[in-house]
Design a protein around this nucleic acid. Sequence first.
DNA 1: TAATAAAACTAATGGTATTAGTTTTCTGAA
DNA 2: TTCAGAAAACTAATACCATTAGTTTTATTA
Lengths: 195, 195
Amino acid sequence: MSPRVGLDDARIMQAAASIANETGLQSVTLATLAKQLNVRPPSLYNHVNGLPEIRNKLTLLGLQGLQAVMHEAVSKQKQPESGAIPALAIAYAKYAIEHPGLYEATININAREHSEEIQQKAAELVDLVSNGLRPFLPSADEADLIHAVRGFRSLLHGYTSLILSGGFNMAVDRDESFLYMIRAYMAGIQRQSVL
Amino acid sequence: MSPRVGLDDARIMQAAASIANETGLQSVTLATLAKQLNVRPPSLYNHVNGLPEIRNKLTLLGLQGLQAVMHEAVSKQKQPESGAIPALAIAYAKYAIEHPGLYEATININAREHSEEIQQKAAELVDLVSNGLRPFLPSADEADLIHAVRGFRSLLHGYTSLILSGGFNMAVDRDESFLYMIRAYMAGIQRQSVL
DNA sequence: TAATAAAACTAATGGTATTAGTTTTCTGAA
DNA sequence: TTCAGAAAACTAATACCATTAGTTTTATTA
């Protein structure tokens, strides 16, 4: 009655990510997970500490994925100073929309107790944006750079989050709106830093 | 055994809103609601159709509240064309941060079946922003105006959502960041519409 | 005042997560 | 090669959730 399916942490998290992306983060439960892995729910406790731990690990997976595609995006840029920001923005939105469950996990850091690893990855993401923005705002002080990073992040998260919630349904191309807002924001911060 | 507490739809939704704002939308359950109202969970079904209906009503309450403060914000403006947008932005963020549970309900429109009323309120919100933005972009065509509205909404939702998720913790004033990003975005869209 | 409708209740069902305790299976050391 | 212990599955049980069915109490109103 226990043919030892060969479960392990990695396979569990892979299944969790797949469920999250396909049917939503809220439907990652021990029940759905166990069913997909052909196992009874309590068996999962041999490999994982419970649902909260699974959620935390999904957060980390999402941050890692996001960081990876954004890192790749800046690496591939030929002219580092000009195109880094749009490349970062496109990579961010693409990843979020293609991995809605992991992206949602990325945001829903329940305020309390992120692990060290999660803090670390989140900081790397901020640095990536910060470094991309800096050459654009040569005369900006540290506070203004932080303002600019926060605004950029707000724009990226707001756009993707609204798309994922089913927003922006009017008959106007969403991708064009995205490029429009990124261009506008960049033009705006550049102008502000000159003033 | 049933002293008839005097429950009704309005009192239930008031309790639901209070729980949502104080301990999070996810902790609005029939159990917490019944406990707060000194009633057993099944009694709630005499007034309300179940948890999904309560969630829908919270969405509507949130949209109504948001629309009300934004409407008030534009009404109070002396110079209609200049300051409407910052006033709308500030009203939006203030409401969202002061009513986190209702605001969350506002966004989490689970894609499927919003009621007519919800659709209506959501459209009124878009109009409010659209009308605020139009005098700013006199030479913009309809598509560009929609792009601009979407960007503005992305910025507002992204900022508030990240704040409510516990983000933006560095030692730089969040309100200043908010004003910075609004100013930058407005300067940017104005410049784009001229080009 | 008696009948009816409304609002509360209890009890039961089926779904969750989690814990405890048990059985099976694999592995590594004698 | 065997067998003892660890690991991984299991069953059973607890506690909590939403919801439904059926019952009792309360209020209204004819």
